[in-house]
């Protein structure tokens, strides 16, 4: 497997102790890797450490063999790792257009102009709703603009934290289809998803996290077929949600 992002022995947490207790995970270049697991397993914390929002207490994160753990969010962004967080991350009182421009904050004016043309053609919503306040868009539309904003930098790795959270089934389908398209266009995606079935279905590889560590890792299709995973995370409720979504 051609690994672009490698996580080894990661320990991290907040004031009261470690949430991650020795996470090992590999992200395949050009693929979608989906991390599933129960609430509190540490899935989102992994993404926060990778993007530099949280410093690890121990362990390494390497991008193409270069250690990036412990660096600032800005330095990691400069390495081409973009984080689309779980909560709504648009600037609600700013226009859709200004939000997308903010995605290229670290770019030069010329580079931003070049990139914005491509983003507009790939995400029509950016042009159609450019003058509207981002906060006035629906949840699904906001998520699409967030993804468009993340793609401005042509990231080497996109970290997506529960992109389907709070969306209705139709919006969820659009968001997953968009992630799939981005991946087809060459983007590497590390996806954390509560909606396990939908996440694994668009992924090439998957991992199951529990209590701060990766318990199971492999080809996403194998995880979908794994009876233990199916029983714990793809139960009838998850199946029906996934089928509808």
């Amino acid at each position: 497997m051609d690994v672009v992002l490698s996580i080894r022995g990661l320990f991290a947490g907040y004031d009261r102790g470690d949430i991650l207790r020795g996470v090992d995970l590999d992200v395949e270049r050009g693929g979608v890797t989906c991390v599933i697991g129960p609430n509190g397993a540490g899935k989102s914390t992994v993404l926060k450490v990778v993007s530099g929002l949280l410093r690890p207490r121990a362990g390494d994160v390497a991008l193409d063999g270069e250690r990036i753990s412990g660096r600032s969010a800005r330095q990691i962004l400069d390495h081409g790792v973009v984080h689309v967080p779980q909560e709504r991350s648009l600037f609600p009182s700013m226009s859709v257009w200004d939000n997308v421009l903010m995605g290229g904050y670290v770019l030069s004016r010329a580079a931003l102009r070049r990139r914005i043309d491509e983003i507009v053609s790939r995400f029509p919503i950016v042009r159609e709703r450019r003058r509207e306040r981002a906060g006035s868009l629906s949840g699904g539309e906001q998520k699409l603009v967030e993804i468009a904003r993340a793609m401005i930098l042509e990231p080497r790795v996109v970290l997506m934290d529960e992109p389907s959270m709070g969306l209705d089934p139709k919006a969820r389908r659009v968001v997953f289809a968009t992630i799939r398209q981005l991946n087809d266009a060459g983007a590497t995606v590390l996806l954390v998803e509560q909606n396990a079935r939908s996440g694994l279905e668009i992924a090439g590889r998957g991992a199951v996290m529990e209590t701060g560590a990766v318990r199971l890792e492999g080809v996403a299709r194998d995880l979908l077929d794994n009876p233990e995973v199916a029983r714990l995370y793809l139960g009838s409720a998850a199946r029906s949600l996934g089928d509808r979504g």
Binding site: L53, A73, P85, P92, Y105, R149
Partner: peptide, 14 residues
């Protein structure tokens, strides 16, 4: 304006 509206998100964008 980004920092005023969502400081964490602004930091993630550099």
């Amino acid at each position: 304006r980004g920092t005023v509206q969502n400081p964490a998100s602004a930091a993630l964008l550099g």
